[in-house]
Design a protein around this nucleic acid. Sequence first.
DNA 1: TATGAATGAGACTTCATTCAT
DNA 2: TATGAATGAAGTCTCATTCAT
Lengths: 225, 225, 225, 225
Amino acid sequence: MTMTSELPAASVEPGAEPRKSRKNNPEKTRENILQEAIVEFVQQGLSGARVDAIAERIHTSKRMIYYYFGSKEQLYVEVLEKLYGDIRNTENRLHLAELAPVEAIRRLVEFTFDHHDRNVDFVRIVSIENIHNAEYVKRSDAIKAMNNTILDSLGEILRRGAEQGVFRTGLDPLDVHLLISSFCFYRVSNRHTFGEIFQIDLPDEHIKQRHREMICESVLRYLQA
Amino acid sequence: MTMTSELPAASVEPGAEPRKSRKNNPEKTRENILQEAIVEFVQQGLSGARVDAIAERIHTSKRMIYYYFGSKEQLYVEVLEKLYGDIRNTENRLHLAELAPVEAIRRLVEFTFDHHDRNVDFVRIVSIENIHNAEYVKRSDAIKAMNNTILDSLGEILRRGAEQGVFRTGLDPLDVHLLISSFCFYRVSNRHTFGEIFQIDLPDEHIKQRHREMICESVLRYLQA
Amino acid sequence: MTMTSELPAASVEPGAEPRKSRKNNPEKTRENILQEAIVEFVQQGLSGARVDAIAERIHTSKRMIYYYFGSKEQLYVEVLEKLYGDIRNTENRLHLAELAPVEAIRRLVEFTFDHHDRNVDFVRIVSIENIHNAEYVKRSDAIKAMNNTILDSLGEILRRGAEQGVFRTGLDPLDVHLLISSFCFYRVSNRHTFGEIFQIDLPDEHIKQRHREMICESVLRYLQA
Amino acid sequence: MTMTSELPAASVEPGAEPRKSRKNNPEKTRENILQEAIVEFVQQGLSGARVDAIAERIHTSKRMIYYYFGSKEQLYVEVLEKLYGDIRNTENRLHLAELAPVEAIRRLVEFTFDHHDRNVDFVRIVSIENIHNAEYVKRSDAIKAMNNTILDSLGEILRRGAEQGVFRTGLDPLDVHLLISSFCFYRVSNRHTFGEIFQIDLPDEHIKQRHREMICESVLRYLQA
DNA sequence: TATGAATGAGACTTCATTCAT
DNA sequence: TATGAATGAAGTCTCATTCAT
């Protein structure tokens, strides 16, 4: 789920646009609520989020949240689906098949890295879901239905690399994906504790570039024949 | 913070021992509360945890929680400190200095891997802390005071390896530590969403061994001259 | 603050009217709560008052108190403002400017006397506030904004009296107001201890009239040239 | 109860002397608790006072409060008795019988004024008692037993004044006492609200002397034949 | 479609007090 | 005489949700 692709717009901006939902634009009202719900759930977690807090952000009353979403849980599920959906929509634009295996891997790793770096909201909601044992992801048919192409792309690259003798054989795409994702995700998800314990400012641009290079090289070395 | 050493007993078992705290054994009563608080906070998070739920697990009343800890937040901080402390206490027993560089790295990586694998509670509480922006870790002098030796150990190994020509020079121990930790942590922290999305059972013993080997080899290849 | 004017209805009657607030009459519900809150705070003080006790008096649940007032403290502040406001609203109806100086003073003193005698609630809440060092009065902008005309009226009378040679010159209206208020207030505020220690029934109608006359004469003699 | 006499030591000083009660000096421990209880009750009122807060001030544990006093209410009663007793003990030292009537009254009024001015604790506890309808004063046999000589003294002065033709006849000592006490008490008890509403600093030394003179003159004029 | 008013249930916390030695 | 440990009851307040139009 940690995936990878093009620019899904950086993290949602909080109350950036207090777009008046009123009057009588149901589609807009609904979208409005969802946007502010993302902010609240991402910042506070599922238990920590307050329906009142979301209501305060929007211009329609709290009652609307129940009108459109039925319950806090359902709203959370839709937030989850929205953030997962945004991610998925950015995939399949890498055109990795056109690149040489080493270049394709490099591009894939860099993309994954940048992607997590830019989508803190997504990283946080996934962490929150794991605290809840992925209960809501499991429950969501929408997320199940999302087509996941990353393993296919990666598998194809590895196969080409092996054929060309630049990568070794017998590699499982899923393992490689785990190797890539873990670094890209953790760097963002754990930046607060890691940063505090080791006194390092992970978001620093200089450090970020160093780490981007590190994970690229690390993966490539691991794949090499 | 993710680190390193020998077996600190697997995750706390829930209401396993409803040891009667009564009567008049403050040390035990306190410890008792803390143990059950770990279970609750780790399962539910900070906001999701219920003081009542903790009270139900112990035989002393809910009132005792406030008698000993003052507030839910303070209890959470002590849970945090306990889990961090357990981790730290297992460090410094690896005696890595006695091993050849490559062996030392292998041992360190395997230890880190096993350690996270066995300490799901710790992994979860760290995830929870990050959702709270490490607010409570930052607030805890006890955690600040915990001696963090992992970077020293790792640095010493890298230096020896470079001297002996087996590792390249210019490596930052902190970067390497991040590389190791991220994989070991993520594999546990995100097992629910990752497992669900990619339909893989990460805790499976067979898969676990394959991943253990992968992170070892990956790190060693990255370090090699 | 102890002052002056026409009959603002005697002390609030306790649970006299358990008026059904339901349904959907926010103004009434709010007023309802406030009325019963006055009773509770006046009887029990700020610390002694119980939100539950107020809730029991009204037909809407305790939850409503927080819905409309936010906190016990805020409810207390509004009680304070209400009682101060009732007092202020009774001022400016004396038309003292139309009376000869001696008559005006007599009328003012009698009014003040009667006013305190009838408004035990106000006397009690002011006593309570002083136990709290007027913390909440200081905090209330509403009370600050209340126009206080008593000193102006009194000053005007003193000036006229001095001009006419019936009062001496150099009198500070504030001092005179203090002289009048202290007697009228104390007689009510301390009736329990004073009555007990000296075995006198201050509310007795006969005694009351005697004291009413005493403070009138006392003040007039003090002012006389 | 507002009485009158010589220097009973200014208001109790808070934690001024953290006299170690320990070890094994029951008389001192008891006294210690009582002193700190005065501070707490006077500052917070009966409902507002916290047994814990008193315990924190003393060096013996909270348990001692119950050991010596049985309950919070009983402790409060003893505080009440102590403060009333201190007052009474300062009486009967004025030797007013030796003075000419006018001088005696002047001395009595000034004494009463100074006395209240110096004994804020007493003024506050009396206010607190009135909030509680003098319930505990009524309950205390000790206070009942305290000999109250002020009315006798005052009556004797008025009688002599009438005989000598300087005071009018038919005056009730109790009424005169009420006139004097009310001003002296109110000036202290209501200094917070009065000061805030009318923006005057009643404790100011200059203002105090002016008011001291005013109440003297006011009473004397009232008494004059 | 939209919404202001209302709420039961339960959250965290504090209180004066008693237990047991 | 002295006390550390423990607590039932009640306190203030918050929560997601429904009522009624």
